[in-house]
Measured scan of single mutants.
Amino acid sequence: EKTLKIVADSEEEAEALAKELAEKYNLEVTIERNPEEEGKYVITIKIKP
């Protein structure tokens, strides 16, 4: 299993990107607040072998 993390500037941007990735590529995608940067969100994508 591989994990890729993407940082987005807004929750709306994160949700839109996560939804597109999940639907288009059938990936497991989660969104959470970035504890290191206020106002940023981390999109985590898990790629199963």
Rank of each mutant, 00 (worst) to 15 (best):
E20A: 12
I31H: 01
I6V: 07
I6A: 02
V42P: 00
I47F: 13
T30D: 06
E23H: 08
E32F: 04
K2A: 15
I31M: 05
E23T: 11
K40P: 03
E32D: 10
I47A: 03
N34K: 06
G39Q: 05
K40N: 03
K19I: 07
E20K: 15
K46P: 12
I45M: 05
N34D: 13
I6E: 02
V7W: 14
K46R: 06
I31S: 01
I43R: 00
A14I: 02
A18L: 13
S10F: 02
P35L: 12
T3R: 02
L21C: 03
P35W: 08
A18G: 06
K48E: 11
E20Q: 13
V29L: 04
N26H: 09
E20C: 15
E12R: 07
S10R: 01
L17H: 01
L21P: 00
Y41L: 03
E38I: 11
E13D: 05
K48H: 13
K40Q: 10
N34P: 10
R33W: 04
R33T: 10
V7T: 10
E38Y: 10
G39I: 03
S10I: 01
E32G: 04
A18H: 03
I43T: 00
R33K: 11
K24H: 06
V29M: 04
E38T: 09
T44F: 12
E32V: 05
A14R: 01
E38R: 09
L21W: 04
P49M: 08
I45W: 07
L4A: 06
L21N: 00
P35T: 12
A8G: 02
K48D: 12
G39N: 06
K46A: 06
K48I: 12
L27E: 12
I6M: 07
A14D: 00
Y25H: 08
L4E: 12
L4G: 06
P49V: 13
K24C: 15
R33A: 11
K2W: 15
E15G: 06
Y25I: 03
E15P: 00
V42H: 02
V42S: 02
A22M: 14
E1M: 04
E23I: 09
T30K: 06
T44G: 01
K24A: 09
K5M: 15
A16I: 06
K46V: 14
Y25E: 06
K24Y: 08
L17K: 05
P49N: 12
V7E: 15
I45N: 01
T3G: 05
E36C: 14
Y41W: 14
Y41G: 00
P49L: 13
E11T: 04
Y41S: 01
I47P: 04
E38A: 12
S10Q: 01
L17T: 02
A8R: 09
Y41A: 01
K46C: 03
K5F: 15
T3N: 04
E23R: 12
T30I: 05
I47G: 04
T30S: 10
E37T: 10
P35I: 10
E23N: 11
T3A: 04
K46L: 13
E11G: 05
A18S: 06
E13R: 06
L17N: 01
E37W: 12
E15L: 12
L17Y: 03
A8D: 00
K19H: 04
D9W: 04
P35G: 08
L4M: 12
T3Y: 15
E37P: 07
D9F: 04
E1V: 06
R33N: 06
E20W: 14
E36T: 12
E20R: 14
Y25L: 03
L27D: 09
E32H: 03
I43P: 00
D9N: 11
N26P: 03
I43H: 00
Y41R: 01
E20F: 14
N34F: 12
I31K: 01
Y41F: 10
K2T: 15
I31Q: 01
L21I: 12
K24P: 01
E12G: 08
E15C: 11
E15A: 11
P35F: 12
L21Y: 13
E23W: 07
K2Y: 13
R33L: 11
I31T: 02
E1S: 02
K2R: 05
D9K: 04
E36K: 12
Y41N: 01
P35N: 07
A14C: 02
A16L: 08
G39D: 04
K2S: 15
K2I: 15
K5G: 05
T3V: 14
L4W: 15
K19E: 03
I31W: 03
E11V: 08
T44L: 10
A22Q: 14
E13W: 08
E11R: 11
E32K: 03
A22C: 11
V42N: 03
L21T: 02
E32Q: 05
R33Q: 11
E38C: 11
G39W: 07
E20I: 14
T3C: 15
K40D: 01
E12N: 06
Y25N: 04
K5D: 06
E37V: 11
K19M: 06
T3Q: 04
E11C: 07
Y41I: 03
S10E: 01
E28K: 09
K5V: 15
I6F: 15
K48C: 10
V29I: 11
K19V: 07
A8K: 13
T30Q: 04
N26Y: 07
A14S: 02
A8M: 14
T3M: 03
N34Q: 07
E15H: 10
R33F: 11
I47V: 06
K46F: 15
E12Q: 08
E13C: 14
E36N: 12
R33H: 07
L21V: 06
L27R: 10
E32Y: 03
E36I: 10
E37Q: 08
V42L: 05
E20Y: 15
E28N: 10
V42A: 02
E37K: 10
E11W: 13
L17E: 01
K40W: 03
I31A: 01
K48P: 14
K2H: 15
E20S: 13
Y25S: 05
T30M: 07
E13P: 00
I47M: 05
I45P: 01
L27I: 09
E23D: 07
E20N: 14
Y25G: 08
L17S: 01
P49G: 12
E23Q: 11
A8E: 01
A16D: 06
I43A: 01
I6L: 09
I31E: 00
V7H: 15
A22I: 14
E36Y: 09
A18T: 04
L4I: 15
E11Y: 13
I31R: 01
A8Q: 03
T3H: 06
E28G: 04
I6H: 02
K5A: 13
R33P: 13
K24M: 13
E13F: 08
V42E: 03
E13A: 10
E12P: 05
Y25C: 15
E28H: 10
V42R: 02
V29G: 02
N26R: 07
E1W: 06
A16S: 07
V7A: 11
A18E: 02
T30R: 04
A16Y: 11
K2Q: 15
P49S: 12
N34M: 13
T44C: 06
L17C: 10
